[in-house]
Write a protein that binds this DNA or RNA. Structure first.
Lengths: 245, 245
DNA sequence: TCAATGCGTATGTCCGGACAATCGAACTAC
DNA sequence: GTAGTTCGATTGTCCGGACATACGCATTGA
């Protein structure tokens, strides 16, 4: 029984995108079972009234997402494993919200400071030039979960404390028209200093999970540098990654 | 001054791949400076004697790698930031070797055991069925750096202790014809148990970086499940990730 | 002076076709 | 029975063209 697929040519949504979304929904929904063959591209194109390149583009986007696997001479199969989503540049806020945790944020510091050598190097600005500094405590179920310290270059956009407590930093940046492109991250661990321990209601020397990140927009500007510490009993980094073929 | 580009039509290497490699080399080498425009696709295609779809395919692969950015009505630009490589499914061994650290491996355990509930769930095999168990100590500059405990389903390939000490697990799997596809990872931290502390020559309770990973091949089979502990003073996870547009 | 309009340019989408490379299975020969 | 060969099926690569869409800039108008 072939899958119900159709495209709307009067829609402004690209045809290949309509198709890829329907296929993805069918996989998610279980209509396309893992391991099942998708049927050959030419026949699929004919059935939908599309050209083969358009169908290929739709399929390729799902291959890139890790949902499909192509085998020459065999066909295109639905991947058999539990693919969730590849690692993306997500904010802690979004992660928690997606998990239904209703995160709370408390802005501790929101000011302008002179860039230290480390911050200046990360943001590619002159040392001692002005940069925004934001320190936030992220809570989940009323308990401290992470301490986030971020630096932003000046003139990027207004850092409103109320907004920072209502949503995540990345969402604010996107809303300000900044196109996030890539980030360099470093994840490590260390014992908590006395100050860190107090912030997170841990004892001194307790193991902490740490993350440093510099984010770039599509022009190559560094738009954010952050140093985060997490309570490992309450947070860990979970993600899926794909092997680039 | 246009860039020197050419393709060899007698080569079995796909034309779009030849072009993308040359462009990538030009970016790496500095012939294409960050921010510079690549020149429009049609003119580029004409200059190389290629069709526009072929040129687009080459460019697209570099966009996917994060090296180029396309802007409608503007052109294609070289990304201005320091892109190294996106996060990939690399083994610790490869990482260390790439950093010129000449890693050493000591196989502590290489045997077959009955799968615990956790291992059975991760590998999707029956509880108490036979699985391979490998425990290795990874050293760098003669000092312990990580303790790696891995489980593999039976019948996948022969786990030779000598080979395990000479190279990484992923390299062995690839050599055995296994096509790695994706992995689910979890990175956290905790204090060392007495046993862990001794293995890594740390004191009990010292902060450790932990990683759990299940790797799948392109048929969806789980081919490996591992629990790793790292000394955070000697190792951290460094990677770059791209925003999927 | 400043905002709205129009235009050129570049990428985005889509088509229909052609041939090559590879996989798997059926078939054949020993 | 087994090994090698052939063959159909399917994806991979490539072509040349067409129109749509969005951005930046110059022109125009108030």
């Amino acid at each position: 029984m072939p899958l119900e697929l159709s495209v709307d040519r009067s829609s402004p949504v690209p045809l290949y995108f309509q198709l890829s979304q329907q296929l993805e929904a069918a996989i998610e929904h279980g209509a396309l079972t893992p391991g099942s063959l998708l049927g050959n591209e030419i026949e699929l194109a004919g059935r939908l009234g599309l050209s083969r390149p358009t169908v290929r583009q739709a399929i390729q986007s799902l291959v890139d997402k890790g949902l499909l696997v192509r085998r020459r001479g065999v066909g295109t199969q639905v991947v058999h494993s539990q693919v969730k989503r590849p690692l993306e540049l997500s904010s802690l806020y979004d992660d928690l919200e997606a998990a239904g945790q209703r995160p709370a944020t408390k802005v501790i510091v929101n000011t302008v400071v002179q860039a230290s050598a480390e911050v200046a190097a990360a943001l590619n600005v002159a040392e001692d030039s002005d940069v925004h500094r934001v320190e936030r405590l992220r809570l989940s179920h009323g308990e401290p979960m992470a301490y986030l310290c971020n630096y932003l270059p000046p003139g990027l956009f207004e850092l409103n404390t109320d907004q920072l407590e209502a949503t995540g930093l990345y969402r604010l940046m996107r809303a300000a028209g900044i196109t996030l492109h890539s980030a360099r991250q470093s994840i490590g661990a260390r014992g908590a200093t006395a100050e860190e321990a107090e912030r997170l209601t841990e004892r001194e020397g307790a193991p902490l999970l740490t993350m440093q990140r510099t984010t770039f927009d599509d022009t190559g500007r560094a738009v954010e540098f952050g140093t985060h510490t997490y309570r490992p009993t309450r947070y860990s980094f979970e993600f899926q990654l794909l092997v680039r073929p």
